[in-house]
Amino acid sequence: MTQAHCWTSLRRFASVAALAATAAGSAFAQSQGQVTVAVRGGYASYDKSASLDAAPVMGLDAMYGINNWLSIGPALSLGRPQTTGSHFISVITYGVLNLGDTTYFYEATQPVNVLDGALNVRVQLPGRKLSPYATAGIGGYTLFLDVQANRGERHKVGLSFNAGAGALYALTERAGITFDIRSMTYTDYDRNVLDPRDDVVNFRTRVEETLYAEDFKPAPRSKSTVTNFVFSFGFSYVPFFFGGGGS
């Protein structure tokens, strides 16, 4: 995915959030029949085996209140981490060995758009100015790989789970700020899709297949299930057309 694609994706994401924001009245905590929208921004720390560097992440939760302590709704998050270059080192050797050759060492990195969507359930302690909550959900994730690095569109889809906890601090009756810590578990994860060395870059050898392997710290063992953590702050509010009333 190029930077232009990134902007397009985020623009759509921002439109939804902005629409919700403009619709927000003076809002407060969860109550039955209301939809609470939370726009989150923070940092994602990915599993070492995921071979993704930590990166900023944005999220949007829209929770429908079943009663004043239980709510349900979609939760989206989008990040754009860079792949960990030290896990994808390649070697090019120029010249003929018996005459003396020269070997170059390269890291291969690419930006990846990580989109995660889930249906979450949230349990919240009602009726307080500082209201802690717990949340969990199931959904899916998609890794959109860099188009240039992969010579075309390439993506990877999988099932994801999330679970976390946070707290809502009420500013007004219908608005507040949140702090949220959430684990995001990606199943059927395949780190190899992030590796452009074999399919994309010609004339290169993986360093781990050469006599130079010992010079580089080996990448963590590949895992099919990776657990990542997202730390975020957010702004939570109840839009008037979802039960929030006028301002």
Binding site: Q3, C6, W7, L10, A14, G41, A55, P56, V57, M58, L78, G79, R80, Q82, G85, S86, I89, T93, G95, L97, G100, D101, T102, T103, Y104, F105, Y106, E107, A108, T109, Q110, P111, D146, Q148, A149, P196, V200, V201, Y212, D215
Partner: peptide
């Protein structure tokens, strides 16, 4: 958040690491 998420990241498949090795 938008600015942070959409910074100037690009792919780099040839980021040189370590000095060259001269073989015999």
């Amino acid at each position: 958040g938008l600015v942070a998420a959409c910074d100037e990241k690009t792919s780099d498949l040839s980021d040189t690491v370590r000095p060259n090795a001269y073989g015999f």
